[in-house]
Amino acid sequence: MYAFLPALILFLAFCASVWQDRRRFRNAVLLGLTLTSLAAALLAQARHLPDTPAMIVYAAVLLVPALGVLVLGAALILNGVTVIRKEGARPATLLSLLLGLAIYGMVVLVLLAGRPNASSGYLAFVVAALLLSAYLSFLCLCFLGYAWLYGRIPARGGVDFVVVLGAGLIDGERVPPLLAARLRRGLAVHDRQVAKGRPAPVLLASGGKGTDEKLPESTAMARWLVENGAPPERVWEEDRSRTTEENLVFSQKIMSDAVPGYRCVVVTNNFHAYRAAMLARRAGVNGQVRGAPTAGYYLPSASIREFVAVFWEHKVVNLTICALLAGMALGAFLLDALYR
């Protein structure tokens, strides 16, 4: 049973980190390491099990993920076609299609490496690609798994503010469905707190005026909130921000000036909630982030985009690790060529 000790230690570290601050990216990594250690422990102990349970363990740890990669690649390609048909072809809508094709491209590379005449240089390239793919896949699964879990951890107690993050407007002045989902969720948080007999929180609409917009996003959002039942005196605007980070920085200033020691909930769409939570932590915002529903076909591309953004926000560490992994494959190739 000592094989499970690393998984237990990592799980306790994960719980302690979440308790300290559930918005950290290290929580996602610790969760991934816990599950990886658990899988390794199960494999190590499977040889001591009877045949049927052992086969179940081997299938769950080895076969299911292998088949899952092929299924995932096909699902991403089909989703990519759907997104392009609904949203048009542009870089943001091509992500799921490109990732699905990349998965099958990696499978082809590995199969070709099994040829008897495959050169050592090609094998080194495949090993480097596999190492990089494994690292990126691990980080992506950590991010997606913890993002799903984060969205289901309830925010406790009452809040002073409900901050709704802006998004682009239709025709430069109308609230689109994606932004309406955020506003609806923010209004639901407000109404739920009032129904519990607590003071009504301020609904803080956050979003500035884009170059192609006729008015600040916050103005259109505030108008939507009032038209849908929000008390006008409880609707405030933050109308200077252009990015999510500015949304949070400027909103933090408004809230801390009005109510020192405030607590808040930040509302965005579900695919964006975990990354927004990390940005909120960096901006010093005292609150958690809640996600509003998003159209199912849009989620894969949006989630990939969020992961790429998080990866790049930690680019020094990530690119260093990628360089070391590629260097290991290159080093092995050079040593093989030297002693051959």
Rank of each mutant, 00 (worst) to 15 (best):
Y58W: 15
A44D: 15
R23D: 00
I56T: 05
P50N: 09
V29M: 07
S37L: 01
R22G: 03
L38R: 00
H48V: 12
W19G: 15
A16W: 03
P50L: 07
L67S: 08
R23V: 00
F25P: 10
R24E: 09
Q20C: 13
L42M: 11
I56H: 03
A60M: 05
D21E: 07
Q20K: 14
A46M: 10
H48I: 11
Q20V: 11
T34E: 00
P53M: 05
Q20H: 15
V57I: 04
V64M: 06
R22I: 02
A16N: 08
A54I: 06
L30W: 01
S17R: 10
A46C: 11
A44I: 13
L42E: 08
L33G: 07
S37P: 02
A41R: 03
A28W: 00
L43T: 12
N27Q: 00
V61D: 09
T34D: 03
V57T: 00
A54V: 00
T34P: 03
D21Q: 06
T36A: 11
C15P: 14
A59E: 06
G32I: 00
A66V: 11
G32S: 02
F14L: 15
Q20A: 14
A41T: 03
P65R: 00
V57Y: 00
L30Q: 05
L38I: 03
C15M: 15
W19V: 14
P50S: 08
L63E: 08
P53G: 06
A41Q: 01
L49D: 05
R26W: 14
V64C: 06
W19C: 14
L30G: 04
T52S: 10
